[in-house]
Structure formats: C-alpha cells, structure tokens
Design a protein around this nucleic acid. Sequence first.
DNA 1: CGGCATCTTGAGTTGGGTCAATGGTCGTGG
DNA 2: CCACGACCATTGACCCAACTCAAGATGCCG
Lengths: 248, 248
Amino acid sequence: MDAKALHRVKADISNNKSVCSNCRQLEVCMPTNPSSDFLKNLDEIVSIRRHIESGDTFYHAGTSFQGLYAVKSGFIKILNHHPDGRLQINGFYMMGEIFGFDGIAMHEHVFTAVAIEDSEICLIPFHSIGQMGQEVERLKHHLYTLMSGEISRNYTMMMLLGSMKAEARLATFLLNLSKRYQMRGYSPMDLILRMTREEIGSFLGIKIETVSRIFSKFQAQGLLKVHLKNIEILDMQLLKTISNQHTR
Amino acid sequence: MDAKALHRVKADISNNKSVCSNCRQLEVCMPTNPSSDFLKNLDEIVSIRRHIESGDTFYHAGTSFQGLYAVKSGFIKILNHHPDGRLQINGFYMMGEIFGFDGIAMHEHVFTAVAIEDSEICLIPFHSIGQMGQEVERLKHHLYTLMSGEISRNYTMMMLLGSMKAEARLATFLLNLSKRYQMRGYSPMDLILRMTREEIGSFLGIKIETVSRIFSKFQAQGLLKVHLKNIEILDMQLLKTISNQHTR
DNA sequence: CGGCATCTTGAGTTGGGTCAATGGTCGTGG
DNA sequence: CCACGACCATTGACCCAACTCAAGATGCCG
C-alpha cells in the first residue's frame, strides 16, 4: 500500500540528486551536498583554518563545542570510545563535508574526530551564526538543512545496521563512496579507500576478516577489482542489486 | 464507560477542538509535564491537535512535511517500508516527546508514523517558527536543541545496532524505557510495554523469537519478572551491566 | 634487507536466524 | 458466561552467516 509512495519518494530523491533510481541506501553517511552558494558564503564566515596530520586527533570527547567543521581537504573519521576500550567509527567525512554534530546537544563533543590523512579543517562557528545579520539568513536556514541531512543519514545508517547483512552493507558503503567521489569530480568506478579494512568494519558493524572475505568474494564474482585500497567497480548494477538485498 | 463510547467522546473532542487558537485550548493540548520552559512556550505555537486511534497511520511516506509533532498522550512508532515488503521500526515516541524529523531534509516524510495505542498529537509548525517574531527566538533555538537531541539519540542507536549483541540491546532498550517512564512520574521498575515483541525486535534489529528467548533467560536469571507486556525489573544493576557488555 | 602494519585465507565455533508446533490472552458474539 | 477465532508469545530443533583464533602473505618504509 505504502510501497507506491515509497517508490515515488525514492524517485524524487534520485531526480534531485541525478543518481541511480533505487537507492536510498546511497545516502549512508553521506553529508548533504551543500550548494555552491552555501560554500561560497561559508567561506566568508569561516574564521579559523587548521591543518591536521594523518592520525592526529582533531577534537576528543569532552572538548567544548565551538561549532561545526568543514573538511577543506583530507579525510576525517568520527569515533566513539566505549568504556571497555573498544571503539566504533560513526562516520567518515571528506572534502566539502560537514562534521561535528555530536557536540550540539551537550555543548561538548561526545565523540572523537581523528584525521585519517593530512587534512585542512575550517570552523563554522555555530552560535555566532544565530547572531549574525540577515545577510546570513540563508546560512542560518542552512544550518537546519545540515542538521536535518545528518538526521536523515543516520536513519539510513540505522536501517543498514539493523537489517542488512554484511554483503549488502559493504556494497552500500562502496556505492556511497562512489557517489561522493563522483560529486567531487573523481571517477565513480575507481575508488581509492582512505581507511583501513578495520575502520570499514568498525563503521559497518562487521569484523575485519568479514570485510576482507567479502572483498575477495566480490572480486571472484567479477563485481570488483580489488587491490588493497584500490577498488575498481566492474558491475555497478549488480552492486546496487546486492545493496538492496536487505534480508537478514 | 465502554471502549466505543470512549472513542466517540474522544473523537468529538478532537473534532470540536481540532484547531486551537488560544490559551483555552492550550490546557487541552498541554502535555501533562510542563516542567520545561520549552514546553510552556511550545504551547503558544501549537495550533492543531489530532486524535488518532491505535493502529492508524498518522502520516505516511510521501506526506508533505508540515512540522514536527508532540505526543500529548499515547504511543507512536516510526517505521520504514523496504521495497521488498519488510519493514523496520526506527523509533518509539511517548507522551511529551517530539517526532517527525524524517520529513525535514526532503520536505516530505520518508517514513511512516503509526499509533500503537490511542494517541493525541499536536503539530509544531516548523516553517512558521522561522518566520515568527523575536518573542519566539528562544523557541527557534529550541528547534536546534530538538534536532541535535535527535541526532544524539540516533548516534546511540547506531552504536547499539553496530556493536551490541542481542542481550545488551534488549537490556539497553528496557533501561531506556525505564528512564523515560521515570521522567514522567511512573515507576522505573514496573514497565508496561506498549509495543509487541515483534515491534521490539524490528526496532532492535533482532527477531521476535530472540526477543522472547532473552526475556525468558532474563527471567530465569532473576533479572526480570516477565508476564507478556508487564515487565518488572528485579535487578537494575545487573541490567545495566549487561547493557554495557558491548562485545559482539 | 628487515621490521611492522595491514590484509588475506582457512578451520572451527557460535549467536541468532529459520521453521514449526504449542500455548496464552483478549475481544466478539452467541 | 462460555466458546470461538485472531493474534501474540514461547519453546524446541536445526542451520548458517559471521565471529574467533591462527597462520601466512603482501606492501610500506627506514
């Protein structure tokens, strides 16, 4: 009954983003693509730019919240330390994407942000946005957009973690990366992973051995060509099909 | 008074007062927990109030986004229809809680909201908040708070789904419910579940049989006393311990 | 070249899924 | 008030996807 409505929604989403017709999953961990106008305006209020080297922590749990951050270049992971020492990765953010949402509610960050390659990060001062003149009225509205985008992505991630099996998770992850690379002008078929297998597994809720096995299986099926961090997608359509097999 | 008559009366009330224009109705719309300033202010902009019966859909995927909703009484579940017919529950919202965030990003809801018991729902018009005078400036800020709260909860949920095993998930779920009941003045030790085992499982990413088995196991351990939807927590501390065993 | 981190692969185990049967509860109507 | 049927919950037997443990393989960098 609601299937029709769902399909329409999906079609709308896909039209808006001019990408494939059947993948809400593609939105996983996918920061909204801020309009170029937004990014231009963003530059005007960005006050602090920081360079951070691969492996270094950008902020850690407990750091007081200053604002959101835009990735100018590089790659950032957000992770959560469990009391028992384990840790889980909550998301990856690349060039042009916004992170730091974990700090809004409590006015301090509850997670940790770590660079997985040398990166340039800009502060988007959160509180001051609300006090700026009307020339940034649209920016203020964009804050809603940013936050609602984060909410949507997290819902999708919850769906992935709650109801997809390992192969579908990895396929979804690759499709998402592919789309983000494409939007930034890189090839959607040739991915260079910035994160380790371990980090992928932590993000997707599966173990490193499982990640590795599935990469091998996909390669054996002629779906991918895998060489360490270089992934070539050979059959995009099949990848999408696998991504949509939610059954677990 | 029998159930039918009660429904009729409720429906009448709902029809007569479906649009509230001033304070008189505010008493009707007002959540019984007026502790926060926010909820008091919220009342001033709540304009529409709807009664909905158990099992009925409140909004479905594709419905255009009007605003967020406050649960005045009852219980609401948010669910997501997969194309293959399966569905997953994204959250439960009880008295005093806000839902509808799934509609912000795309300006229409991507999920479906269904009442799991007879409920009273108030609309919090979203767009109009941004156009109101400065007397609701604090409310506008509260919108950030609401959204960031949702983001935080979803991060927690992602952690649960990504790294906890079934027993820890269920323990966490019970502790969460317990806390929410307590905040509303009910006993934190005696829970009356509003949802079925199937719905719990769908929310937690496990199967109904697993939910049932774990309830039985917890009862055998002297952790809970379980009788269908009545759950008595006998060992809160142990429940917390189990909830913290993230290992999977 | 050697040391180290990352990745792959195999073998064995297990948590939770699937299938199937039974039992309990509740609302409705005779 | 009881009987019926629909739904929900429990339990057992079996199975499989993903985990754990373990051993190599590969690439990277000083």
